[in-house]
Design a protein around this nucleic acid. Sequence first.
DNA 1: ACCTGAACACCGTTCAAGT
DNA 2: ACCTGAACACCGTTCAAGT
Lengths: 177, 177
Amino acid sequence: MVRSDARENRGRIMDAARAAFAETGDVSMNQIAQTAGVGAGTLYRHFPTREALVLAVYQEEVERIVGSVTRLLTEMAPVDALRFWTLDLVEAMRKKHGLGDAISASALHKLNEETYDPVITAITQLLDAAKADGSIRPDADPGDFLQFTGALWRAQADGENRAPRMLDLVIDGLETH
Amino acid sequence: MVRSDARENRGRIMDAARAAFAETGDVSMNQIAQTAGVGAGTLYRHFPTREALVLAVYQEEVERIVGSVTRLLTEMAPVDALRFWTLDLVEAMRKKHGLGDAISASALHKLNEETYDPVITAITQLLDAAKADGSIRPDADPGDFLQFTGALWRAQADGENRAPRMLDLVIDGLETH
DNA sequence: ACCTGAACACCGTTCAAGT
DNA sequence: ACCTGAACACCGTTCAAGT
């Protein structure tokens, strides 16, 4: 039986952590607890370790992204859904790599492992819709696509963001036109 | 002008760090300083940061391995040199991944980046010798070879080490026989 | 059943004092 | 020119006391 204040605190901690990890990730546990407005012990009651907190935040993010596929496909044409969805994913990848110094190498590895399968499933779903639709070549491979987009998160240097343009290039190559 | 005690201390620090990082890597800077028999300040005079020390140790290791190629090629047949050398490299990879939790994700990334070129050069040198010798197929690719061996460092579970056997398999596939 | 926050052991790093 | 090691600010994590 979870008390309501416990669930509320968990939410506040997740919010604070999400905001904290958004760009750099070099934020201490005590800082996150303070921002969330809870004691350090509460933070550790919910997430027994720093790594657990980081993992929880990014698993939630991946779930959100992966879960949005079905809705996107009802709202727009498959190719547009693919484009929109991928930019969302690329942004999440950028955040993940922004963790950089603050996350241990093995924690990052675990993150990648637990993230791979659901992401591939989502890409497959999007590509299949676009193939059924006839807008994308039937031989387009989800793994290849992920590999390509994996390079896009770097493409956000000074000033403007080249990721959308590069993504257009990739998608254009996959289209039957 | 480097004082002789400074050079001696540097060597002692490197020795201590090499031993410390050999398996796990969760050793504090103060511990390393103590093992090396120097004050903490001396450690930081030589390596301004933890990351700098880790990098130095593994760059030295890579240099040693890469530098051994020429000598190996004069001492044994090219294919044997390739086999011997690769096992040495695999062992170094295992150590690197053993750092696991103790090294930051970005430091590990930097390590991989600074290590890639010299390693590929060494592999090329070995493969070229074995190709000239006629023992290995002329179309063998250094990048592919590195990719293959990159999987071998995991193959050292409980008891015995399967890496040599797996490597034999790879090399056998490359031989002209 | 859950929360608070002072406290703990330890970390990477610095710097005054020495030779 | 270099070394020592006590000290600093801070870290992740724990736990007695509260409600």
